[in-house]
């Protein structure tokens, strides 16, 4: 019992230390983006407005309103201070529009899509990789290897367009875009629609939201699964040759149990990889959202890039940076929990 308490204490300490370690990562990205967006030649407002001339007093007023007339180092700390308080400033293009509000509205959509896509990719990767590892050197193994390479090279909007063509245009089974039909009403609680539908006991909304989620999640999931296929295949087939697997068999454990324990061992490097994969997952989500008009951070970024709304672009990127930091922390914690050899 006492040992259990000490263990929890050590784990908490580990989480805090790991949490502190993501601060420099976020600061570096913040600095990089700041330099990039603020130190560029030319006036961002002019290029945002897409014009070469704005009356000087109006420009001056606008610069002041956005805080762009202050010295750079003041801007640097001001903005940092503000985003740490959840204030991402005001749009450069649409006067008075709060970026924080826009982002808050769109973050749950991206979270819903990435979680669904992630789940699809891990499931597909585990199934294909396990099939390959169990029949190493067979035709199945060969086709799974090809799948692993090809899936990774698929261009997301292309795969998405094939799905839209097949399931929406020709078969008419699934919607081609959006998150919910306009005719459906759903009370917004978390902003993750499937979850909100469950929380409010609204099956019609749940199935409608799920229908909208299927194609984007499949698209994102398939492209990301290729890497898992390869990883599961190589790790699992190494583990299946391990001495302790032979020892399990020699004690009369059934093959299902042997495979279960082999997978548990193979999962350890795969969990580490999930952290690295996160960047690819979020990047893939940006393209998936744009393809399926999914109103998340990615399609927001797409819109703002078209309008050159630099303050909104900067805000979106900082949100991505925070998400990367947070999830890599979560992955570290899971890793510490599943591998008894990790000391914390």
């Amino acid at each position: 019992m006492r040992e259990g308490v000490a263990r929890v204490g050590r784990l908490l300490r580990y989480i805090v230390i790991r949490g502190l370690l993501i601060i420099p990562t976020i600061l570096i990205l913040y600095t990089l983006i700041f330099i990039l967006l603020r130190v560029i030649p030319g006036n961002p407002i002019l290029s945002a407005l897409g014009t070469h001339y704005v009356p000087p007093e109006i420009l001056q007023e606008k610069m002041h309103r956005l805080g762009l007339d202050k010295p750079l180092y003041v801007q640097y700390f001001d903005y940092l201070w503000n985003i740490l308080h959840g204030n991402f400033g005001e749009s450069m293009v649409i006067e008075g529009r709060s970026i924080s509000k826009d982002l808050a509205y769109r973050i749950p959509a991206t979270i819903e899509l990435t979680i669904a896509g992630f789940t699809v990719s891990v499931l597909l990767g585990l199934i294909t990789g396990t099939l390959a590892a169990l029949r190493r050197g067979s035709k199945i193994d060969y086709s799974m290897r090809v799948y692993g390479i090809v899936a990774y090279t698929l261009f997301i909007p292309w795969l998405g367009s094939l799905f839209i063509l097949l399931f929406s245009v020709y078969l008419g089974w699934l919607p081609a875009g959006g998150r919910l039909d306009p005719s459906i009403t759903l009370k917004r609680i978390t902003g993750i629609y499937t979850l909100d539908a469950i929380l409010t006991g609204n099956p019609a909304a749940f199935f409608n939201a799920l229908k909208h989620l299927i194609l984007p999640a499949l698209t994102l999931g398939i492209v990301l699964s290729g890497a898992y296929t390869r990883l599961v295949r190589s790790n699992l087939s190494d583990i299946l040759q391990a001495d302790f697997i032979r020892a399990y068999r020699s004690r009369g454990l059934p093959e299902t149990k042997v495979l279960k324990y082999a997978l548990r061992n193979a999962m350890i490097p795969i969990v580490t990889y999930m952290g690295l994969q996160l960047a690819i997952l979020l990047g893939g989500a940006v393209l998936t959202e744009t393809t399926f008009s999914w109103p998340g951070l990615g399609s927001y970024l797409f819109e703002k890039i078209q309008y050159r709304d630099y303050s909104a672009i900067q805000g979106t990127i900082m949100v991505f940076a925070f998400m990367v930091g947070l999830v890599s922390l979560i992955v570290d914690i899971i890793y510490a929990l599943i591998d008894p050899r990790i000391r914390y």
């Binding site: 990205l29 996160l278 997952l281 990047g283 990367v324």
Partner: peptide, 10 residues
């Protein structure tokens, strides 16, 4: 490492 951990396309 910070850049590497960030989504490349973004």
């Amino acid at each position: 490492d910070s850049i590497y951990a960030f989504p490349g396309i973004v």
